[in-house]
């Protein structure tokens, strides 16, 4: 049943005009990124590569937050949720199926963005290496974590607030990546409190290999596995929280 729901969610997402529209916006932004490369007083290749990889992450996260917060809410508004839940279907299966379908759609969108970005870089003469693909893969993991964050916030609050909290979590997630370097400024009880609070949000610094990849700096396969495992654990935790909340929710 999970696969059926996931398949339906995936088909619905990739057939939506918003999905195609965002891909087109991404393609336009990627094409314009070359202009920044031109004005950079360099050959522009590295600058363009950085921007393309950043666009994949930023647009991907925006899509993840927007769709993650609307995922269940849209079903409630269109009342299709009641039809589905009136069948002998546990609520957890519904949530997991919806998230799996959304994740598959987001991953497909991200893969398309990565392919467009790398093709553009290759056409414009920038160096395209396998490391960029690895960096793109880690960005997909980042986007999926953010989709799970948004889904979880939706279960706890209203969709609008969930979107705001989702974006705030994204900012915090990158901010906490810099925190270990600042710990020596904290004294006594401040350090464990800061570390404890910072550990409550996903450390999105795990997925920022893109900056090194643009320079062709290799990454250990072990590190990639670790980063993906980190993403997997956060997704599992957030989806489980969502299921727990959704089971008790009065719909």
């Amino acid at each position: 049943m999970i696969l059926v729901i996931a398949g339906a969610t995936f088909r619905e997402a990739v057939r939506s005009r918003a999905f195609l529209g965002l891909l087109i916006i991404f393609a336009i932004c990627v094409a314009l990124s070359r202009i920044v490369g031109w004005v950079s007083s360099t050959d522009g290749n590295l600058v363009t590569t950085n921007i393309v990889l950043s666009l994949q992450s930023l647009i991907g996260v925006l899509v993840a937050v927007a769709t993650g917060t609307a995922l269940v809410q849209a079903e409630i508004q269109s009342r299709t949720l009641y039809t589905v839940l009136s069948r002998p279907l546990p609520r957890w299966q519904f949530v997991v199926g919806k998230f799996a379908g959304l994740s598959a759609a987001l991953a497909a969108g991200q893969a398309a963005m990565l392919a467009i970005g790398l093709a553009y870089l290759w056409i414009t003469g920038a160096k395209v290496t396998g490391w960029l693909v690895v960096a793109g893969g880690l960005t997909i993991a980042e986007v999926l974590v953010m989709a799970a964050v948004s889904l979880c916030w939706t279960a706890l609050t209203s969709p609008l607030l969930a979107a705001v909290l989702g974006l705030a979590t994204y900012a915090l997630g990158h901010a906490v990546a810099s925190l270990p370097g600042l710990m020596h400024y904290l004294k006594g009880w401040q350090a464990p409190v800061a570390a404890g609070l910072a550990s409550l949000v996903p450390d999105l610094g795990h997925f920022t290999y893109r900056d090194q990849a643009a320079h062709g700096i290799p990454i250990n396969p072990g590190d990639v596995v670790m980063h993906l495992a980190y993403a997997g654990l956060w997704i599992a935790l957030l989806v489980t929280i969502t299921v727990a909340v959704f089971r008790r929710k009065q719909l």
């Binding site: 920044v36 950085n50 990889l53 980042e142 997630g173 990546a177 610094g205 997925f207 900056d211 643009a214």
Partner: peptide, 8 residues
């Protein structure tokens, strides 16, 4: 999380 792009 976009340090290199922001720097450029």
């Amino acid at each position: 999380g976009q340090a290199a792009t922001a720097a450029k």
